[in-house]
Design a protein around this nucleic acid. Structure first.
Lengths: 204, 204
DNA sequence: CATTTTCTTTACTAAACAGACAACTATAAA
DNA sequence: TTTATAGTTGTCTGTTTAGTAAAGAAAATG
């Protein structure tokens, strides 16, 4: 009962866009409100701080993303093909982003995580959680690839951490250089790290 | 002639520490001045903005770092050992940093680059320049390793970009997770990417 | 239709902030 | 010892910022 509103959602959309196209420290509550067309009084009705809004918005956007990852990393998909799909997907997303904003923006969690990790503990926890979810998708693909004899990776967890670091590193490099082409052969680096033979790689 | 001063240097030291332990957006000119024990009037005597100070400070600190890299990447050092020395060096630095600040701080250029790339053009250019210098060290090591038959890497430039992305990714992950152990086997990932055989890797 | 609840709006405070300026001080060189 | 130069200081400006509070408007429910 009572009045209904989508202001909360508009605030979450606004903050995500501002964080991604700019940075956490440079986006103000006033800016967020202006972009969301919400008065500051309403902002404080829904959230108690910028960091709380950011954490909630990140969590919500991860929910959406997760559904897509579930499809890409389905056990029905051959394990190495999962990684390829993931890289193709990132490449496509970044191309669209560049079309839309005139800039490659990379991975919002990773960029934000590196920025706020020494300052915003609550937000930081949420980001670590999301990055850990990502790692698990990769880890299960590696484990399946190992079981199928496609790669030799007895320690799938360590390999997954390595590959995630590489993946995020490449995306961040693309952001810094504002160049999607950096992402062209991301999967090549992953396969090299896993010691996938060239013939196998080509077949995937 | 005239009065002498080390205020400029103090300001550069202060901003580097604040950027590294915090972020660009969250450090204010007042904070920098306070840490450097310099009045704001003097700040504006030496620099016209925070971004100019940051760019100069980054360039100066890179100069120091470069001498160490020249030693590590000397053509007198076997090419794969250069990479190993580089990883060992990073690990040691981050351990010291964690001792000193209670936190792993990763790579200042990369973190800063990801934060400001959509906003501070001048600063961004300087960061890209420094990251490109780093890439060249790695590239020449790879080229020499290829020439020596240690690895198969006809496109050394592309491989170097990959390895730099991985290296920076791992450092950033260490920052986000505040854990040096993430860096323990950085060189293992590099060698895997280069397809170095285990026997060779152990020998380096 | 009334009333309770949910949301919105406006106006406000106090602090932090960037940036400018004129007066002041130290010192290297003439 | 003078003087030009390089650097310092305190004070002031206006603006942007986070955050509050109280009154008002819409709508779901009885």
């Amino acid at each position: 009962m009572g009045r209904v509103s989508d202001a909360k959602m508009r605030l979450m959309d606004a903050v995500l866009e501002l964080l991604w196209t700019g940075s956490y420290g440079s986006t103000t509550i006033d800016q967020i409100c202006e972009k969301a067309e919400v008065k500051k009084g309403s902002f404080y009705y829904f959230f108690e701080s910028k960091s709380e809004l950011a954490a909630e918005a990140l969590a919500a956007s991860w929910q959406d993303r997760q559904a897509e990852l579930d499809r890409m990393f389905s056990p029905m998909v051959p394990p190495l093909e999962r990684l390829r799909k993931y890289c193709d997907f990132s490449y496509k997303i970044q191309q669209e982003i560049k079309q839309k904003y005139g800039r490659v923006l990379g991975c919002p969690q990773f960029a934000l995580g590196a920025e706020v990790c020494t300052q915003e503990d609550r937000l930081q926890k949420k980001i670590q959680e999301i990055l850990d979810y990502k790692r698990r998708y990769i880890e299960s693909a590696i484990r399946d690839a190992h079981a199928a004899g496609l790669v030799h990776a007895p320690d799938a967890a360590a390999k997954a951490r390595m590959i995630l670091a590489y993946y995020e590193g490449v995306l961040t490099q693309a952001r810094i250089q504002n160049d999607v082409e950096v992402l062209r052969d991301t999967v090549g680096g992953m396969f090299a790290m896993l010691g996938v033979k060239e013939e196998t790689a080509a077949a995937v």
